[in-house]
Structure formats: C-alpha cells, structure tokens
Design a protein around this nucleic acid. Structure first.
Lengths: 221, 221
DNA sequence: GTGTGTATGTCGTCA
DNA sequence: TGACGACGTACACAC
C-alpha cells in the first residue's frame, strides 16, 4: 500500500481492516493504535477497483484499489491479496455530536465567576475584538483593565498570543494599563515561566468546581 | 451513546459502524467525515457487554457496551438497538508505516545543501541545543552566525519560535550577531510580514528539487 | 475561499 | 513518565 501526496508513505503486506465511506474516503486500520488509521484518503475522493500489474499478480495480488482525491493529486494505492471478509451497509445521514466542556463553556463560566481572577474584578465583555483577533475576556480590575487568555491546556503558544494582545491593548490610551492573565485548567511549567517573566499572572481553573457553582447558581432561579 | 471524560459528548440513535480493536479501543464511525470517528475510546481500555436498563429495554435497546479507560476514568457507553452485521477477525501484529518527506528529511537535505541560504554559508550543526529547545540548523554566514528555523508550512508560530531563539543566541558573545532565517516549503503571508518586520530572512524550499539534487548526489558515490 | 484558533487532538522524541 | 513540537494534523468559525 502506498500513499503519495504531501508526503510518501509505504505499508507492508498484512491483514488489515479497510473502511470505505459514502463520500469516497478510505481508511486503513490495524488492530491497534488509536482512532487514527495507518493510512487513509480524506474526502472527497473516488475509488476505483482495478487489475494488478503482472508482477503483482504473480506475487499473489488479486485486485488493486486506487483512491484518488478530488481536489488534490493525492493518491492511495492498495494491493489486495486475500479478502477475508466483505460487507456493505447503508448508514444514512447522521445526527450530529453534542459536546459539553470545551473552551466556550469554560469562557462562559469564567465570565460568570469573574471574581476567580481576584477581588475587585468586573466583566466588561467576552470576545473583545481587536485587529489581531478577539481577546477571550476583558475585565476591569482593581488597577486598570485586565485581558484574559483562556485555554484548556496552558501552553507556550497561549502566552505568545496573550502577549500580542497586550502589546496592542496597551497602545490604546483608553484602556492602558492592561494587565494580562493566563487562565487554564492546566498550565505547563515552561508556559508559566514565560508568562511570569513577562508580568502575566497565571490562574489555574477547576472546571468541575466552576460547573458545580454554575449548577448551584442555576438552581437559585 | 455517551462519552464522559475530558468533556461530555452525546450522540443520538442512528446506524453506525463500531470497531473494537485488540487493545480495547472502540471507534464509532458514521458514513462520512474524515478518518476521525464521531466518538471513541483510546487504548488501553476494556469493554464490557451488559444488559440495558428497563426503560432502555422498553425503548428497544438490546444490549449496552461499556468501555472503560484503563488509566483514567473516561467512559464510553453505547446502547445497541439493532445489530445489522457482526464480524470478528484476528489481524496479528502489524509491520510499521514508512514515511518520507517529513521535517526531518527536509532538515537533512537543507543541512546538505546549506548554500540554499545564500553564498558563503557553512553548516555548524543541526539541532543546536539551547535552554529553550534545539535550533533546527546553526550555520556560519558571510556576516556572523545564522540560525535557521525549518517548517513544512511556515506559520506565525514558527516566526515566534525563531524570535525566541534569536533573543537568546544574541546574548551569547561567542555567537552574536546571529541572523535569523525562516525556511519552509510554503510561507504564509502573515508569517512573512512578521518575519521581515523583525529582520528575519524568509527562504522558500522546493522539496522535490532538493530531493532530486540529493538523489543525483547519491548517484555520484 | 482564506486565515485563525481549538482539539477527548494523536504521535514521536527526549530529558 | 512528562514536557514539547510536528502532524498528510482535522475542524469550526470569522472575515
């Protein structure tokens, strides 16, 4: 099996599970690893079943699947030796997945519980727009404004992002001085070091606790 | 179907493809989307098939799969209504995937063809270590040292990364002045603007051409 | 459509 | 084992 596209990848002969979806995408799974296939073709694509080359046929290949991406020239070529099992099913359209507990939930909760940043904080707005993107939360603090960058996992990238926002916001005489707060469920040591080096405060958030408070609040009304 | 773990996700009743791997991982696929399942459990995990609750049974549920992660308390619960098809196969161990054309290949090629940075460049080392991570390529240029950050796709993150390295390297009197070069197969306009604003040179690399040269070189020996 | 930020990211590597 | 960066990242959303 060979994939040619953004890179080139080869896969030796073995027993595998092949999945062909309605949109032409093809997945090649082994009996381990996580949900990621060993090799695949993203939709939209078209699959063609053809004859093997003579040398392949003599090596035991019975058929060859050629999967061609519609938009790019990415190609996946699968040589079939033995078909252990084959089964086709019509699944129909799928209702979507409903998620809960992603960054937007965290943002909503922190906006409601803005005092987690410290005493004397008041929410100004979520998703405060700037030319380089929205600041997650803008608040008024005891000594000026506060810009909050929110992440589930606080990584060095988030600190860089917040730094860019702060540079910009502090040029606005109506807002300056603006303090930075890096809030996340978990903050990596390197990110914390960088943040504190730049005078950015780090706040670790407990999602379960915040959600608990939120539920309690809801019950009051 | 419900997943409880880092987040909570619910999936309505529909016809789907369920895959259970040898390591206990479970994938729930619809007949579209890319290779990512709608919902899944990562290995290691254990699956248990049990009876539905009475209210579920009266709604038509025939069995309930409970998938429990071994290391965390992530849980995936799948209510089965109808089994359209069931098939089990032993796949055995899998030979690995062989890739070609990833960043390490690009790095090796650029190290060999360091003159692509311009005349008068000489390689010092790849993966030059610094306290904040390795510099992809360090070279001697016509006017001091040159630090190269290498990406397949040149994004703003890469420029930030290189900037951090340059700040650090230029504090070393043995190395300063260090010029920055941002080399990638493709450089996003925003990344280019930021880089040039910071005096970082941008170099676009043609992988196919570089590989061609490499093959030609190999053939000489 | 392109750019930007998130992800139950996943996956390798290296301390 | 945990941090860190790459990924054929994929994916949603704003402009």
């Amino acid at each position: 099996m060979t994939y040619t596209g953004r890179l080139t990848a080869h896969l030796a002969q073995a027993t595998r599970l092949l999945m062909v979806k309605a949109d032409g995408s093809v997945l090649v799974h082994s009996d381990g690893g996580s949900y990621k296939p060993l090799n695949w073709m993203s939709p939209p694509a078209t699959m063609r079943v053809g004859e093997p080359e003579p040398d392949e046929a003599s090596a035991g290949v019975t058929e060859v699947w050629t999967v061609q991406a519609t938009k790019s020239d990415d190609t996946l070529r699968i040589a079939i030796f033995t078909l252990h099992h084959d089964s086709a099913h019509e699944l129909g359209t799928d209702p979507g997945l409903v998620k809960d507990g992603v960054e937007s939930d965290l943002q909503r909760l922190l906006a409601e519980q803005i005092e987690r940043l410290g005493d004397g904080h008041a929410l100004i707005r979520r998703e405060h727009p700037t030319p380089i993107g929205p600041v997650d939360i803008l608040a008024r603090g005891p000594a000026g404004h506060v810009a909050v960058e929110l992440k589930r996992r606080g990584d060095i990238d988030g600190v860089e992002q917040l730094t860019r926002y702060l540079d910009l916001l502090n040029r606005d005489p109506l807002l300056a001085p603006v303090e930075g707060v890096f809030a996340a469920q978990q903050i990596k040591p390197q990110a914390r070091t960088l943040a504190e080096d730049r005078g950015i405060r780090c706040v670790v958030l407990d999602y379960d606790e915040m959600r608990g408070l939120d539920d309690a609040d809801s019950r009051l009304f």
